[in-house]
């Protein structure tokens, strides 16, 4: 099965302390691993003020995960996250396609730049050659 890269960001409720957020993170990790996925990176943003209150929460702990998982499994992960207590909100998006596009753009631009530079260099050389 082809693996796809996903970015999962979730907000934990404000009354949860750091250890509880850690356990929540590991449970989410468990969901992904159960579905033949692997977690590449976990990034904890810590407690942040929400832009608007969600329920009674004015703050929330953000946790970002980058995971490789088969495409069919993400719906199950989402379902499990939905029923997990303590998760205020989450967002799982696929990023591999976008990243590939961005990389391609970057390489194209790099090539253009290098050819431009090369042509400029050549012109410079020609100019110098003419001057000598």
């Amino acid at each position: 099965m082809s693996q796809r890269q996903y970015e999962i960001l979730f907000i934990a409720e404000q009354n949860l302390g750091e250890p509880e957020v850690d356990t929540l993170t590991s449970t989410v990790k468990g969901f992904i691993e159960k579905e033949n996925g692997t977690v590449e990176k976990v990034e904890k943003w810590g407690k942040k003020r929400l832009a608007y209150p969600i329920g009674k929460n004015r703050e929330g702990s953000y946790v970002l995960m980058i995971a490789n998982a088969p495409g069919s499994s993400i719906s199950e992960v989402e379902r499990r996250m939905r029923v997990t207590d303590g998760i205020l909100r989450f967002l799982a998006i696929r990023i591999d396609a976008e990243m590939k596009k961005a990389d391609r753009k970057k390489t194209i631009r790099g090539k253009k730049e290098s050819t431009r530079r090369a042509s400029v260099r050549e012109k410079d050389r020609a100019y110098e050659g003419g001057a000598q």
């Binding site: 960001l9 907000i11 929400l50 832009a51 608007y52 969600i54 929330g60 953000y62 909100r89 967002l91 998006i93």
Partner: peptide, 11 residues
């Protein structure tokens, strides 16, 4: 739209 959903930006 995504940032709004995750309360990073106000509606």
């Amino acid at each position: 739209l995504r940032a709004r959903q995750m309360a990073l930006i106000p509606y």
